[in-house]
Amino acid sequence: MLFFSFFKTLVNHEVTVELKNDISVRGTLKSVDQYLNIKLDDISVVEEMKYPHLSSVKNVFIRGSVVRYVHLPANAVDTPLLEDATRREASQAASKAKQSSS
């Protein structure tokens, strides 16, 4: 849930999604779901000539499982807050694991 919540805070920011097949798509993050499927608006494709099938496409739905990276604007990320949230999520996961093994 951590990264789902994290991406929700980045809605309407410009991001670049790099896929495992090396395509990079830049656009405005419009939506994300629990699988980290991503919807981008007003897209532009890095190396457009290599991927002609995307030249008449204006928005994309990218399946989470094919994503390698999402390049984010650093100024949109509150890193101390993110680290705290990570620790909280980790301790929740640890206590859950404990409950189920006791």
Partner: peptide, 24 residues
């Protein structure tokens, strides 16, 4: 170290149980 012949070095800001990461 990643699949796809890649390596990263960066400051770790977040992770989860799937090893999803945010690096700066």
């Amino acid at each position: 170290k990643l699949r796809g012949d890649r390596e990263l070095k960066g400051r770790l800001h977040a992770y989860d149980s799937h090893c999803n990461l945010v690096l700066g």
